[in-house]
């Protein structure tokens, strides 16, 4: 598990005086790492799926849909990963996505605000809720699981409070065409998700604040001795998580053209599945942006396979559950073996 950061962070070519030995070593670490395994699974899965469906997967519309609907799982996975980085959990990620989506639609339909304002406001709303989560955890010293369980319930209610069970539609056509559009065949929302993932990766890899979060999650004692506030790290991580959920909400609004309060119901479990399969530990101190994205892609492939073969939808959950269990077992076996080698 601990190698995850190094493998994603290591840029063998980036360092002018890197000795050949160490870059070779890093290549080995990478080949043994979670990311490599996930890349292989993703590629094999994609190729198998593409060939067994007789190339149907590669036709423009289908391929576009594969990546369009990958954006939200990536974003909620990253939102969960951000709090896992400091050893916290955020159970409110799913409902918060739904709430911000409803809020954005309400701002456009009912309050008549222009789309850009609504979008920014919804993202900020997500951040504010995340900030509240973080402050509650730090101020009350109650376990983060319980705090976000409670806020999840509250937000769930708020989500329906916006428009009951009704649907918002016919909001900003510009936003929707932007959301459903693509550049050079790549869906815009997917580009957005990848750009956000890149920003999150840079944040955790390079930004002082991001490193402080990871230091706090990895060894709170050492972090404190280095003048890093563990409380601040928790608040920042929850705020970031909320912001990312807000972005996910916006993507839903832009992509689907109509939203109702049930959005987010089925996002909580995937939000954990992506980072955990991607190699993030619950204990904190480790993030894996690439792993999270790849895991989200693999889960999406299961979804696609279900649609392509018209299999019972239930298989998706069964398989994803089995994959998560398998992933933790493999990680456990591998770290166990490495531990013995030392």
């Amino acid at each position: 598990m601990t190698s995850t950061i190094d493998t994603t962070g290591a840029k063998p070519s980036g360092e002018p005086d890197s000795r050949r030995g160490s870059s070779l070593l890093r290549a080995q670490v990478f080949l043994r790492g979670t990311d490599f395994t996930l890349i292989v699974i993703a590629l094999v899965g994609f190729v198998v799926l593409a060939s067994t469906t007789g190339g149907n997967l590669l036709t423009g519309g289908t391929l576009k849909a594969v990546f369009q609907y990958l954006a939200v799982p990536i974003l909620v996975g990253l939102a969960q990963m951000s709090v896992l980085a400091v050893g916290q959990m955020n159970l409110s990620v799913g409902v918060l996505t739904g709430f911000t989506a409803m809020a954005a639609a309400w701002l456009m339909v009912r309050a008549g605000l222009p789309a850009p304002v609504a979008v920014i406001a919804a993202v900020l709303l997500g951040g504010a809720v995340g900030l509240a989560n973080g402050l509650l955890v730090v101020l009350t010293r109650i376990n983060g699981f319980i705090v976000t369980l409670a806020t999840m319930t509250v937000i769930d209610g708020l989500r329906y409070g916006v428009n009951g069970t009704g649907t918002f539609q016919n909001y900003s056509s510009g936003l929707v065409s932007l959301g459903q559009g693509s550049i050079l065949g790549v869906p815009n929302v997917f580009i957005l998700a990848i750009a956000v993932a890149g920003a999150v990766a840079v944040f955790f890899r390079r930004a002082v604040l991001g490193r402080q979060l990871l230091a706090s999650g990895g060894n709170p004692f050492a972090a404190r001795l280095s003048g890093i506030s563990n409380d601040r790290a928790i608040v920042v991580a929850h705020t970031l998580s909320g912001l990312l959920a807000g972005v996910a909400g916006i993507v839903v609004v832009a992509l689907s053209g109509s939203v109702n309060a049930s959005i987010g119901d089925d996002l909580l479990l995937p939000s954990f599945a992506a980072p955990i399969i991607g190699g993030v530990a619950l204990t904190g101190g480790v993030v894996a942006v690439l792993g999270t994205c790849l895991a989200a892609f693999i889960v999406r492939l299961v979804d696609v396979a279900q649609a392509q073969y018209s299999i019972d939808r239930s298989w998706v959950d069964l398989i994803v559950g089995a994959v998560v269990l398998g992933a933790v077992l493999i990680t456990q076996v591998r770290t166990g073996r490495e531990g013995r080698r030392k």
Binding site: L214, N219, A222, S226
Partner: peptide, 19 residues
């Protein structure tokens, strides 16, 4: 009790107090 962040590089651990 080891005062290091296990997932960080040697360089970053050394510089942690004054990044």
């Amino acid at each position: 009790e080891r005062n290091l962040v296990p997932a960080f590089s040697v360089a970053e651990n050394i510089a942690l107090q004054a990044v």
